[in-house]
């Protein structure tokens, strides 16, 4: 015997969880380029063409309990299966710290459109997540592979940063 319940559709003006690109100037270091003036969806659509290797993550929330919430990095493998890696930023929950820097294992956190962070965000809570990254772009297309091959053969990095945005 089954009970069937019809879905009620509610068109809200506000998302349950909203994400916006933040002005990172207040916490950027000198010489850093900040991704700004774009929407979160535009950022998502850039992924794949642009690949970001994150060497430091920054989490900040006025709700210190949010910073003790487990955070997991996931990436899709070639078969489309999600592989998970737990990040372990640690803070003392009794000191009410509201920001933390975390250096993941080198090469672990790559944002390429098939990866991301998954975590719970507590009720009525906001959090800033900042990725300090090195960006790689495939705007050079297939030619960049030829450059890399040439560098390997000659053992001279004369095309260094040729294919990276400045």
């Amino acid at each position: 015997m089954a009970t069937t319940i019809t879905a009620e559709i509610v068109n809200n003006t506000t998302a349950n969880v909203s994400a916006t690109m933040a002005d990172a100037s207040s916490i950027s270091t000198g010489g850093t380029i900040t991704l700004s003036g774009v929407s979160y969806n535009q950022f998502l659509q850039s992924l794949g063409r642009d690949v970001y290797l994150a060497f430091t993550l920054y989490f900040a929330s006025q709700n210190s309990a949010q910073l003790t919430t487990p955070i997991t990095f996931f990436i899709l493998d070639a078969n489309g299966n999600k592989k998970y890696e737990t990040l372990s930023p640690t803070i003392d929950p009794y000191q009410f710290v509201n920001a933390i820097y975390y250096n993941p294992e080198k090469g672990l956190v790559v944002l390429n459109g098939n990866s991301g962070l998954t975590f719970d965000i507590l009720a009525n809570t906001s959090m800033r997540v900042q990725f300090y990254t090195i960006r790689k772009s495939n705007q050079g297309g297939a030619h960049s592979i030829n450059f890399i091959e040439l560098e390997k053969r000659e053992n001279v990095p004369f095309f260094l940063e040729y294919n990276e945005e400045v």
């Binding site: 349950n16 969880v17 991704l35 990725f131 990254t133």
Partner: peptide
């Protein structure tokens, strides 16, 4: 050159929400 990506995430509900970021 370092490149920063900064995202503000807001839970607008009174329930804990699962987030997939980026």
């Amino acid at each position: 050159t370092p490149f920063d990506i900064s995202v503000n995430i807001v839970n607008n509900t009174s329930a804990t929400q699962r987030v997939n970021l980026a």
